[in-house]
Amino acid sequence: MPETNYSPGQVYFEKGENDTALVEQTLAGDPRAFSQLVDRYQKAVFNLALRMLQDADDAEDVAQAVFLKIYERLAQYNPHYRFFSWIYRIAMNETLNFLRQRKPMDRMEENTVETSAMEDVERADTAWQIGEALKELSTDQRAVVVLKHFEGFSYEEIATILNVSEKKVKSRLFSARKILRVVLEQRGVHAT
């Protein structure tokens, strides 16, 4: 198995050393280097936004804004930290800002992405119920749930990304789980 800088989730990242080189090349004025960074992280950023926003069009807008912000702040990136954590931090902040500015979420089934899970009606229904249940959470709670369960980050990494203490991460996560457990049960989603 190849060595990665990220283990538990489904997002696969190559080793970070290449990222640092691409950052340096971008800062030196090579647009192809930034193009490679976009190739590498657009899927992760888009999916993070999609899980937080539950809307594909909004997720696309946010992902675009995230990469422009990444480019603007590239000179501020500290190579001592993992690049993907830094990107996630920007992506999550951008998503949370978007959520704060957005009106209360309407159900926009037509804009939700059709995944391969649509082939399996039961799985698709569960996925939809989870998406709806996530909307019952505050944005802060939703952020920790997405980062912990969907992205597989540790408490420490989530704390870094959200710029809060680990204690706060745990507190938000445990409260969120408590709410989700009840909401999903009410919606008839029973885990076995």
């Binding site: 489904q10 696309e60 029973h190």
Partner: peptide, 20 residues
């Protein structure tokens, strides 16, 4: 435990081709 299983990471969705 059941909740953790339900919240298993969904499959990653390919971003729209127009994004990049």
């Amino acid at each position: 435990l059941g909740l953790s299983r339900v919240l298993a990471p969904p499959e990653l969705v390919d971003p729209p081709q127009a994004l990049k």
